[in-house]
Design a protein around this nucleic acid. Structure first.
Length: 989
RNA sequence: GCGCUUGUGGUGGAAUUGGUAGACACGCCAGACUUAGGAUCUGGUGCCGCGAGGCGUGUAGGUUCGAGUCCUAUCAGGCGUACCA
């Protein structure tokens, strides 16, 4: 019987739907396994062949786990909010919901053809009210929470059994009512950076505050808060962007310039969770490189904050340093241009120079700073006093100090910091070396090693006779920290690079905030009124007054009497208030979708405790590594917050994570001969077309390489007729072939002359004509072939180019596999007892495939299938005891063909409910075992032993072997080494 | 600059704790069959050499009876990050 993949695949696609084969329910009697793919953004271009790679890999794993008896959750959905649909809406007026719906349908159609075991009854879409209900809900909870290292009720604060957690803001309010801010620092409460004056108040001061004042104070502590921060503003897109959405100073989407701007924005206090995000990495099974990326992004650094007084003034300021030991080498201080201190410390003589510098800095974009790293700065006119020596140190202002990290001010130690060194050299400031033997005449000595000197310099004296001379750097750092703490000069401090996430976007196509404004302060709409649905607008652009697109909505006001959305005209700021105009960013909807899959239709809660208890967290998460510092940080944060709330029972959402590598395109080129370059033949008389030369001949001509559609090239040989039809201007094209002949030579072209294209690996994109569409492959070869080939292409984690050429091999294999079962049009399978050779083939395969799937290295299982199939075909094996397990083994990889064969073998249930075959080692034992014996540096092989021989027998036999004996007699033996080959290892066990 | 990562035939890639490097597939070559195909089947295919033989895992050393695998140095590519004090 012929392998008719089209019919088979169609049949099983329908059957899986009608029999609900992949729907799962919580089943307490079976162990759960949760497989998850990063859900896609449904773009207009549809899927290309690279998209399904990770889905196939995880689908194989999901099917394998199911065959092993697990209750497998393998859901899919759409990250449906996003910029492209909105940009398209702006250009065409088409509502993004319509575009998105159309794209989703296209995605679904494509996905359905590949045979995934997704439970579509659990599909989620981030843009649906039933889904974003819970995004809004979580946001409200964050607004109503603050974060502290210990419960405020514990009397000892930090010294008590710590439990860092988000807590209801009411706890903080109760504390303020009783104590003000007195003693609050014992509890490690996370808050926005505050000045001395606004940060402290007494209980009676708190109680005397107006409601608005209280709200303003609380805003500094909420986990979701409205904060005035420097943001990445993208004028072209008219919105702010998160740090991970900005690459090289331009927007990740669109590549538009990004500038720094001070704006009031919703923020999430991700930084409060920095330490837990760092610690959590130790408990999860991710690749080391990805964990390292997150560690760097979190950027923990231990150091000290130190106070510096300003000479002739009562101003004091704080700096952060990890090299407290270099205090005696400080020769100047530097402030960030955006620092509040700049205003206070600039003297009247320097005012003009400073103003000029600040306006220069303001003009520079992020991109300028990156591209030219020149040394710039200006003297403020003020001097700071070194707390250890009393010396006066000039205070400078320079853009190399960042306002957003540490305190926005540093002590500069040019001898031991390369940035300070460059600055000192440029402005001719003194450089004092502090490490014995360090040569700082050409560059700074940044390493944290060596013996300290000049601390203080000979003949000078420091506060309390403090000295670091003679200590190692490590000892000096510790000693200085201790001294700083004991003399009240500052405190030991851990800083994180991780910033709070900016959570507002000035866009239409996103989750609306469930927030209205009363007296300028945000208020949450009542929880039972969620979801607050996205309003309709006429235009998707910002309003004329520069408000976000929601400013165009006519019905976007909140009536607190009826608790409903009403017309803007009703706004009276008494009972009807304006609603928030910003929307949430892309990462909002993707931050907890894995929880929603567990209980997608629950309209009472994000997830029921029962569903959460059963599914717990994701066992295997598959997706691209480009989300390392975005989604994978935010969702870990989000999940930790929900964990603190008791909503999620696991602190880490994704236990194991595999990054699938990108599939690149393989572009083909033709070489067009430039005008004026001598040609091999003259025109035929008709209108002469352009000339193209084959790769091997192209060096002889002056050519321009041009991309050519990979779909009209086979094995790098151009299909000439298809090429002529591809573009009207190529209709009369002439060719010089690989063998040097040409299409216009008087004798005609040589028989078999070919035009060979060049090739290169590039990104898969329309403009390079190298996009390969999975539908086409499925149409030609079938979904099972596509699945097999995608896995065969190489390790899942590695980036690799797509090359359709090799796909025949996978298809041929499936045909061979199919043919094992059939003789003419009848099933050939018999119930005979299998032979030892047949059992060996089967069990070798079981072992290999089981191990491979566990290790996620499918690319080596496919060859194992091919070898086993070839072996069994050669043995003419048609025995059920061999072939039936083979069907189960291949089911995760090629589910359609497996179902068809399973049914042909007489089974009434789906192959999905079969049992994964057990591996038995006894079938693998060899009859004989080869040994290797090494003589005088040369290894010899070829001593055979019975397979059941034990170690001692083998060694004795080897020693008695005639060769061995001869060498022993000649005393030329250095060593006799007996190396069991792998088969022996099995015997030994 | 820093961090991570990868270097194996014409190509994608195999090679378990160090143990016959190049599995399997593509491509290529030869042959068979034929309804002449983008079909199927068989055999061959790392490089040099007629041959025996020699050389081969980015490069140079080292450890070892034995190294793709371990160590040291170095070169090249990929990814991430960017003045984080």
């Amino acid at each position: 019987m012929e392998y008719n993949f089209r019919e088979i695949e169609k049949k099983w696609r329908q059957r899986w739907v009608s029999q609900k084969t992949y729907q799962v329910t919580e089943d307490k009697n079976r162990q759960k396994f949760y497989v998850l793919n990063m859900f896609p953004y449904p773009s207009g271009a549809g899927l290309h062949v690279g998209h399904p790679l990770g889905y196939i890999a995880s689908d194989i794993y999901a099917r394998y786990k199911r065959l092993q008896g697990f209750n497998v959750l393998n859901p899919m959905g759409y990250d449906a909010y996003g910029l492209p649909a909105e940009q398209y809406a702006i250009q065409t007026g088409q509502h993004p919901a319509i575009t998105t719906e159309a794209n989703i349908n296209r995605y679904r159609e494509q996905l359905d053809k590949i045979g995934f075991s997704f439970d579509w009854s659990r599909e989620v879409r981030t843009c649906e009210p039933g889904y974003y209900h819970w995004t809004q809900w979580a946001f409200q909870k964050m607004f109503e929470s603050f974060y502290s290292q210990a419960p405020l009720s514990s009397p000892e604060g930090e010294t008590s059994a710590k439990k860092a957690s988000a807590r209801p803001i009411e706890e903080l309010i109760a504390y303020f009512e009783k104590n003000g801010t007195e003693g609050l620092d014992r509890f490690g409460v996370a808050c926005s950076p505050l000045g001395e004056s606004e940060g402290t108040f007494t209980a009676s001061e708190w109680n005397a505050m107006s409601e608005v004042e209280k709200q303003q104070v609380l805003m500094n502590y909420r986990i979701a808060y409205l904060g005035e921060t420097m943001v990445n503003w993208c004028p072209e897109l008219g919105t702010v962007l998160a740090n991970d959405e900005v690459i090289d100073g331009v927007s990740a989407r669109g590549g538009f310039p990004v500038v720094q701007k001070r704006m009031k924005q919703w923020c999430l206090r991700v930084s409060a969770y920095a330490q837990r995000l760092l610690d959590g990495l130790e408990t999860i099974n991710w690749t080391e490189s990805l964990k390292e990326t997150q560690r760097n992004w979190i950027g923990r650094s231990e150091g000290a904050e130190m106070q510096f007084k300003v000479a002739n003034s009562d101003i004091e300021f704080t700096i952060f340093t990890t090299r407290a030991d270099t205090i005696f080498g400080v020769t100047f201080m530097v402030l960030a241009p955006e620092s509040e201190l700049v205003k206070q410390l600039t003297t009247s003589e320097q005012q003009a120079a400073v103003d000029e510098y600040l306006s220069y800095v303001k003009k520079r974009t992020e991109r300028d700073r990156i591209s030219d790293r020149k040394v710039t700065g200006v003297f403020s006119g003020s001097y700071a006093i070194n707390p250890f020596t009393g010396e006066e140190i000039p205070v400078w202002i320079s853009e190399y100090v960042l306002a957003g990290y540490g305190t926005g001010a540093i002590m500069a130690v040019p001898a031991h910091d390369s940035r300070d060194y460059a600055f000192a050299r440029h402005f001719n400031l003194p450089i004092i070396p502090l490490i014995e033997g360090a040569d700082v005449s050409e560059e700074s000595f940044d390493a944290k090693e060596g013996i300290v000197m000049n601390s203080p310099a000979t003949g000078k004296q420091a506060l309390d006779d403090f000295s670091l001379n003679g200590l190692t750097v490590k000892e000096a750092i510790a000693a200085t920290k201790a001294f700083v703490a004991s003399h009240n000069l500052g405190r030991v401090k851990v800083n994180y690079r991780l910033r709070d996430a900016i959570f507002s976007r000035q866009r239409y196509w996103g989750e609306p905030f469930p927030v209205y404004y009363k007296d300028g302060m945000p208020q949450m709409i009542p929880e039972e009124c969620l979801p607050l649905e996205l309003p309709e607008v006429d235009k998707f652009l910002p309003t004329e007054t520069g408000e976000p697109p929601l400013g165009n909505a006519k019905r976007w006001a909140w009536d607190t009497k009826t608790n409903s959305v009403v017309d803007n005209s009703a706004i009276d700021n008494q009972t009807v208030f304006p609603l928030e105009l910003n929307t949430m960013p892309g990462f909002a909807g993707s931050s907890a979708y894995y929880l929603r899959y567990m209980d997608p239709h629950n309209d009472q809660a994000l997830i029921s405790p029962e569903a959460d208890q059963y599914w717990q967290n994701v066992d295997l998460y598959v997706g691209g590594s480009e989300h390392a510092t975005g989604h994978l940080i935010y969702s870990r944060f989000w999940n930790k917050f929900l964990f603190d709330l008791g909503v999620s029972c696991k602190e880490e959402p994704f236990q194991k994570l595999v990054n699938q590598g990108m599939i690149q395109g393989r572009s083909n080129f033709v070489y067009r001969i430039k005008e004026g370059c001598p040609l091999p033949a003259s025109p035929k008389g008709e209108e002469d077309g352009p000339w193209f030369v084959s790769l091997g001949q192209s060096e002889k001509y002056d050519v321009t390489p041009l991309h050519v559609d990979v779909n009209i090239v086979k094995n790098d040989v151009l299909d000439l007729e298809a090429f002529k039809a591809w573009r009207p201007e190529y209709a009369n094209a002439n060719f010089i072939f690989e063998d040097g002949s040409n299409s216009l030579s008087p004798l005609g072209e040589t028989e078999g002359a070919q035009y060979v294209c060049g090739w290169a690996v590039e990104k898969m994109s329309k403009s390079m004509f190298n996009v390969v569409n999975p539908d086409m492959i499925v149409e030609k070869f079938g979904a099972d072939t596509l699945r097999l080939y995608e896995m065969f292409l190489g390790p899942v984690e590695q980036a690799k180019p797509w090359d359709t050429n090799g796909i025949d091999g996978s298809h041929r294999f499936l045909k061979k596999f199919w043919n094992m079962f059939w003789s003419k049009d009848a099933l050939a399978v018999t119930d005979d007892e299998p032979t030892a050779a047949e059992l060996k083939s089967l069990h070798k395969l079981i072992k290999k495939v089981t191990e491979d799937i566990e290790m996620f290295s499918y690319n080596t299982s496919i060859p194992a299938f091919m070898i086993a199939t070839n072996e069994l075909t050669a043995l003419k094996c048609t025995k059920r005891a061999i072939l039936e397990p083979m069907v189960v083994l291949i089911a995760p990889f090629a589910p359609h063909i497996a179902e068809e064969l399973w049914e042909a073998l007489g089974h009434e249930t789906s192959v999905c409910d079969a049992q994964w075959p057990d591996f038995n080692e006894k079938y693998l034992i060899e009859d004989t075992v080869k040994m290797m014996v090494a003589f005088n540096g040369k290894t010899r092989f070829g001593i055979d032993f019975p397979a059941d021989a034990d170690n001692a027998t083998i060694e004795a036999a080897a020693r008695n072997h005639e060769l061995t004996t001869k060498y022993l007699e000649d005393k030329q033996i250095v060593k006799v080494i007996i190396v069991p080959k792998r088969m022996i290892n099995i015997v030994m066990k």
